[in-house]
């Protein structure tokens, strides 16, 4: 599936720096969906997300030197995308503000609803997911998303959210307590829903 195999990304990066131009393309296709999904959490405008991914890779293609210095490729790519999208959004709103990574909107639940496919199982899962995310604050949402959807660890989450590592742990911990609660009610709801289906 999607998720980042960090070492894999590092290997691809190294191959690319040593002159294997295909390696970056492989990395691009591998990371795209996951990166794209993350991007759509900051704006419903898909064009901005696509353009920002393109800009990000134009940048990576342009400077092997910069990429060579990056220690954690996956983390670098995700953080850069977030930065590029927020910058573009600020530009569109004529905000004179600097990009503030620690205070971004995170639109999980709404984008989930849009992606509902006509399939009962996915449907109920999406409903459950919205239910779970609805109870969380925007930072909690992003932290949970980064941890369970993208597979980032606490120091990486802390860096992307521009908070300290201890806060990222607390954030995830608080969110997990809430998730557990809504998951309990959610799965009960789920069961009722399924029973009704089989009953009719």
């Amino acid at each position: 599936m999607l998720t980042g195999d960090f070492e894999n990304y590092l290997l691809l990066r190294d191959r690319y720096i040593k002159g294997d131009t295909k390696a970056l393309a492989i990395l691009y296709f591998e990371v795209f969906d996951s990166l794209y999904s993350y991007g759509t959490k900051f704006t419903p405008n898909k064009e901005i997300v696509e353009d920002s991914i393109q800009n990000l890779f134009v940048d990576l293609l342009g400077s092997k030197k910069k990429l060579a210095k990056v220690i954690n490729v996956k983390h670098y790519i995700f953080k850069s995308l977030k930065y590029l999208i927020l910058k573009e959004l600020a530009r569109k709103n004529h905000l004179l503000d600097n990009v503030d990574l620690s205070n971004a909107p995170f639109l999980v639940a709404s984008s989930v609803e849009k992606s509902i496919i006509n399939n009962e199982e996915t449907d109920s899962k999406s409903k459950l997911l919205s239910l779970v995310y609805d109870k969380l604050g925007k930072k909690e949402k992003e932290a949970i998303y980064l941890k369970y959807n993208c597979g980032f660890n606490y120091p990486e989450i802390a860096n992307i959210l521009q908070i300290n590592i201890e806060s990222s742990r607390t954030l995830v911990y608080r969110a997990i307590k809430k998730i557990r609660k809504s998951f309990d009610t959610g799965s009960k709801m789920n069961v009722v829903y399924k029973n009704r289906l089989s009953g009719s």
């Binding site: 795209f32 969906d33 996951s34 997911l129 369970y148 959807n149």
Partner: peptide, 23 residues
């Protein structure tokens, strides 16, 4: 965990290729 990591947008391959080639 599987519910939380379910949320994945899929972009058609043709679109991905377009974006890559332009890049």
């Amino acid at each position: 965990i599987s519910t939380l990591s379910e949320d994945q947008q899929k972009v058609p391959l043709s679109r991905k290729i377009e974006i890559w080639e332009e890049a």
